[in-house]
């Protein structure tokens, strides 16, 4: 994997959309319905497919079911109807969870008093691959170092996670997600509550992961303007899938329909 220089990073990710491998499916969502209480459907009839190398933005109003959809794709919630497949396997039978990285919504993460250093947090991302009684190996350490360097947080390795700024914590959680060498990363509003500069840096980092490492990204965001500039596909969710399209198409539709989200 070659490292590209900083200038090429400025090209929007979708400009290299040709790199998406349409012959394979990473995520298949088919006719998915979800209901918490058995009466009202939070999600209705949602179908779409994500291919390797894709960068998908999930957008929609509050309460539109974005997080519910994301959690269903992660196997944290089971759809009431329909089917979700990861890497071609039914999610209930899917075992290769190290292929999947997850960066949860910031507020729900953890409490700031948790006594763990940056290094320890990232190391957790390696746990799934190891069996019971397993000890940290040299390879684990090496991968933790690589991941932290990838997100520019290596020099903070001995700091407590609770002592970092929101943007820095977010980078550490990205490092934890990539340390298991996944093929796809799910992010739930990763930039909420982070200052503008840190948000920019964060999107640059995501672009780098998508383009240089070929990671597939699925991202929930409220920042529609920003997301439409970054991703290759926009899944517009409002209980149902309103549209699944390129960002340009999405913006055209929005203009035409004059719908305010």
């Amino acid at each position: 994997m070659e490292t590209e220089n900083g200038t090429t990073l400025k090209t929007p990710a979708r400009a290299i959309g040709v790199r998406v491998d349409h012959s394979k499916n990473i995520i298949e969502v088919q006719d998915v319905f979800f209901s918490y209480d058995g009466k009202t459907n939070v999600l209705k009839n949602i179908t779409f497919t994500v291919h390797p190398g894709d960068y998908v933005g999930l957008i929609g109003p509050n309460g539109a079911g974005k997080t519910t959809l994301l959690k269903s794709m992660l196997g944290l919630l089971s759809p009431t109807r329909g089917e979700i497949r990861l890497f071609g396997q039914k999610i209930s039978e899917f075992k290769d969870w190290y292929k999947v990285g997850y960066v949860p919504q910031k507020a729900t993460y953890f409490d700031a008093g948790f006594p763990a250093t940056v290094e320890e947090v990232v190391l957790m991302g390696r746990y799934a691959k190891r069996g019971l009684f397993a000890r940290t190996t040299v390879e684990d350490r090496k991968l933790v170092k690589e991941s932290l360097k990838q997100v520019d947080m290596w020099e903070y390795k001995k700091r407590l996670i609770g002592d970092l700024s929101g943007g820095q914590q977010q980078r550490v959680f990205i490092a934890r997600a990539i340390v298991s060498q996944p093929e796809v990363i799910f992010l739930d509003e990763p930039t909420a509550g982070i200052d503008r500069q840190a948000q920019n840096d964060f999107y640059v980092l995501l672009r780098k992961l998508n383009r240089e490492l070929g990671l597939t990204l699925v991202l929930i965001s409220h920042d529609i303007e920003r997301v439409t500039n970054e991703v290759m596909h926009i899944a517009w969710i409002d209980r149902t899938l309103e549209s699944y399209s390129s960002p340009e198409e999405y913006l055209r539709m929005r203009k035409k329909e004059q719908i305010v989200i």
Binding site: W97, V100, P104, E120, V121, M124, Y127, A134, S180, F186
Partner: peptide, 18 residues
């Protein structure tokens, strides 16, 4: 390891296959 991860972040631990 599992206890540490689950204690720190139950959801992420579950996603990682724990």
């Amino acid at each position: 390891k599992e206890l540490v991860y689950v204690t720190f972040d139950e959801e992420a631990a579950q996603v990682s296959g724990i």
